[in-house]
């Protein structure tokens, strides 16, 4: 599987574009279709492509585990933070009087957190699966 030259070449070309597309989907999640979950899944699929590139095949799982735990805590904190600023749980932190261009950043940060969390979780899952399958 890893010996085919053409697949390795195409995977090398495709990998940065998949990363770029995933990041685009995450960051523009609040103005165009997509969002944190979808972009995170695409980033995880980009990691799947690197299984064809032998130099990049080895990663440490612990980083992804740590990132997932910390980002889940961050999500919970972002949800709870709106209790002190707005007065309701699990809504936008910034108050409704601010202009839309500023309130939008809360959604961008939330999308980023969800996207990185989902991509690290899925990467962890199938890296462990591939290791187990060998």
């Amino acid at each position: 599987m890893k010996d085919s030259d053409s697949i390795r070449c195409i995977a090398r070309i495709l990998y940065p574009f998949m990363l770029l597309f995933g990041c685009y989907i995450i960051i523009f999640g609040d103005v165009s279709p997509g969002g944190g979950f979808q972009g995170g899944v695409i980033l995880a699929t980009a990691r799947l492509v690197t299984l064809y590139i032998p130099e990049k095949a080895d990663i440490d799982v612990e980083i992804f585990n740590l990132a997932e735990k910390l980002l889940f805590l961050l999500l919970l904190l972002l949800g709870l933070l709106s209790l002190f600023t707005v007065g309701g749980l699990f809504t936008n932190v910034l108050s409704a009087e601010l202009p839309h261009e500023i309130r939008r950043w809360f959604l961008v940060i939330l999308n980023l957190a969800i996207g990185i969390k989902v991509s690290s979780g899925l990467t962890l899952i199938f890296t462990q699966f591939v290791k187990e399958g060998e």
Binding site: V31, S32, G35, R104, L107, N111
Partner: peptide
């Protein structure tokens, strides 16, 4: 309410 142009994101994130 949510200042998000994508209404799916408005429901999911707010």
């Amino acid at each position: 309410d949510t200042s998000s142009k994508n209404l799916v994101a408005a429901i999911l994130l707010d």
